[in-house]
Computed example of a mutant assay.
Amino acid sequence: MTDRDADKRLAAAAAVDEVCDNMLVGLGTGSTAAHVIALLAERGLTIETVATSRASAALAERLGLKVRPFDAVARVHLAIDGADAIDADLSAVKGAGGAMLREKIVAAAADRMIVIADGSKRVERLHDTKLPIEILPFARAFAVERLSGLFEQLDERTGYLTDNGNIVVDGHGWNDADLPGLAEALAAIPGVVGHGLFLSEIDAAYIADNGVVTRLERGRNPR
């Protein structure tokens, strides 16, 4: 039986090996990113961090890492985060933990963005994964109506708000034939403030499957 949590930790360890003293490191959100935070704390490097969620910031501070507020940061040396699904082109779906907007901002600010995952997250196509969309509550009905033309089903997360105070709707049954076109269509809907499609942000991925870690680099992988 595959130990997915052990694989997550192996992938996290491979990514953490890229961290050096004096770096400013972006911390992701979720169970996989939690391994990164714990491993960084264990290494005892002289680093500072920024976090993509309150939960990650709290964990990092509890383990002794220095966390800076991101609102005063323009550049991050390295960001490490998990993914819900990732393909051979390093396009990914993220946002199961609801932090996709902050994760995308930190990824965009990073000189290098690494995704870590267990083997179950590596897919040939992304469309079978639910796509999280962050919506301003003021625009709930309007945005959902516009989104209904892009998805077969939309499920709002009941009683849930992101750290930004927004709602999240998960889209099911979507067409991944034109991912840039879909990302553009989502961004064009007033009230949609973020979505979980990461198409150009990821530079590399460490994927662990049954104890074996594979590194993928953008533009260097055999198809």
Rank of each mutant, 00 (worst) to 15 (best):
T214V: 12
V144F: 01
A14D: 03
D203K: 12
S56C: 09
E201W: 07
G173A: 09
G119R: 02
K121Y: 07
Y206P: 01
A15H: 05
L216K: 03
E42C: 05
N210C: 08
D170Q: 11
K8A: 04
A51V: 02
G191K: 01
E201H: 14
E134Q: 13
L65A: 08
V169I: 07
R75P: 01
A13I: 12
A208G: 08
A60Q: 10
I207E: 04
R4W: 12
S53E: 00
R43M: 12
V50Y: 12
V168F: 04
E134R: 04
L199P: 13
V144R: 14
L186D: 06
E152I: 00
D81H: 11
V93D: 05
G159K: 04
A88V: 14
R122F: 11
D209S: 12
F70H: 03
R112S: 14
A204F: 05
L10D: 15
F142E: 05
D111T: 11
V123W: 06
I80H: 07
A41T: 15
K104F: 08
I114G: 05
L39T: 04
A208S: 15
K104M: 09
A88H: 14
V67M: 02
D155V: 12
R223V: 12
A85C: 07
I189H: 15
G28S: 12
A79G: 07
T49E: 02
A12C: 13
V50D: 05
M1H: 13
R157P: 09
H77V: 05
R218L: 10
D128Y: 09
T49K: 05
N221S: 14
V213C: 06
D176Y: 07
A33W: 06
H195T: 09
D21I: 06
C20P: 00
I167F: 05
A107F: 03
L136G: 00
V169M: 01
L39Y: 00
Y206T: 01
Y160V: 10
K94P: 00
P190D: 06
D170W: 07
G171Y: 06
G191E: 02
G97E: 02
G98R: 07
A13Q: 15
G196V: 08
L199A: 04
L78D: 01
T29D: 10
A88P: 06
L216Q: 11
E103V: 08
G171H: 06
V192T: 04
A6E: 15
G95I: 11
R140T: 00
F198W: 06
I167Q: 02
A177R: 14
E48C: 13
R215K: 14
I37R: 10
K121V: 03
E184F: 08
G95R: 10
A185F: 00
L197I: 04
F151K: 04
P222W: 11
R218F: 15
L65W: 03
R43D: 10
R54Q: 10
